[in-house]
């Protein structure tokens, strides 16, 4: 069973493909197979050029899904193509909210298993092996499918570096969702975007994150101030997102963003595996924690055993004086 065709689930935000979409297209291309994308929304025509620029030769356009959540209609449209005989060998899906929904729905429609939390996929033309984290990323499992194609992999952000191929504009093929019935009942009534200033968390060159060690929501201002001084973005552990101190969009880790900045500063964060998996790819890591046995120190290039309430104000002061 050779690997001849790979599909990438192409997500977009504000009219451009998301970074993970471009990362997956880049990897799909390197597998030596025909690379195709599946997109949805009313703006697919506008995205197609960029998808082609990263290697897609065909874009299947599910079209406008109205106020539905993408999982059901997009999986429905993909299953429809596949059942009609247009069968990819591999499907790469971003590990995002909607990506996981699409993969789950599609898996049942095709009765095909899914491998999730993937950080690498490789093909030798016939077989595909993937790597995924175990125990929150402490160990890495190499896995492969033993059943029929298509093989569905849900891949984490920043597993690959996106590189344009300079490919031509792809052909866009309409692939509308079939009749979906009750499963498509969920409707979005309103969308709320949280205000953020400065660089995006997953693109910033410096990320300063705070955890429960800050002691209270009011102290998060120190994290924001330090991030601003370093022209970076402010992040958080899940503990303080759950506690409602900061919006979810700040979360770094297994269920949050994966970041790989030049510098990551962890303040009052213990370093649970689920947090580490989202930031240990950073080039440099500074940790401030009052517990010298905190696991975060095992990944830190510079660890300060100390109280954030003492270290951070002085640091902020010094950086301000620095100009």
């Amino acid at each position: 069973m050779s690997i001849d065709k790979v599909w990438v689930l192409a997500e977009s935000a504000e009219g451009v493909p998301t970074s993970i979409t471009l990362e997956l297209l880049t990897r799909a291309r390197s597998m030596g197979a025909v690379t195709e994308a599946v997109a949805w929304g009313s703006g697919t025509a506008g995205l197609a050029g960029e998808l082609g620029n990263y290697g897609a030769t065909t874009v299947y356009d599910v079209g406008d899904i109205g106020d539905a959540l993408p999982g059901v209609p997009v999986a429905g449209a993909m299953a429809e193509l596949i059942v009609a005989g247009n069968r990819p060998d591999v499907i790469l899906v971003p590990a995002s909210y909607d990506g996981r929904d699409v993969a789950a729905r599609l898996s049942v429609r095709l009765d095909a298993p899914v491998i999730t939390n993937v950080v690498d996929v490789d093909s030798d033309g016939d077989s595909v092996s993937s790597q995924h984290g175990l125990f929150g990323g402490a160990q890495v499992a190499t896995a492969r499918f033993t059943g029929a194609h298509p093989w569905i992999f849900v891949v984490r952000a920043k597993s690959f570096t996106a590189e344009a191929s300079g490919g031509a504009a792809p052909q866009v093929v309409a692939a509308p969702a079939p009749e979906l019935g009750a499963t498509n009942g969920a409707k979005v009534l309103a969308r709320h975007a949280e205000e953020r200033t400065g660089p995006k968390l997953d693109e910033a060159d410096v990320v300063v994150s705070g955890g429960r060690g800050l002691g209270g929501a009011e102290h998060y201002a120190m994290i924001e101030e330090l991030a601003k001084l370093l022209h970076g973005a402010a992040g958080a552990s899940r503990a303080i997102v759950d506690a409602g101190w900061v919006p979810y969009s700040h979360q770094v880790g297994q269920t949050g963003k994966t970041v790989k900045p030049t510098l990551y500063v962890a303040c009052g964060i213990s370093g649970a595996t689920q947090h580490l998996v989202g930031m240990k790819g950073s080039k440099n890591i500074i940790a401030i924690n009052k517990d010298q046995d905190a696991p975060i120190f095992s990944v830190a290039d510079l660890g300060i055993v100390g109280d954030v309430h003492k270290v951070l104000p002085k640091l902020i002061e010094a950086l301000k004086a620095h100009g």
Binding site: L69, Y97, A186, K187, A190, R191, H192
Partner: peptide, 12 residues
């Protein structure tokens, strides 16, 4: 429902 940007109000 949590989203990348914030949250969606969803009725089902």
């Amino acid at each position: 429902r949590q989203t990348e940007a914030g949250y969606d109000e969803v009725d089902c």
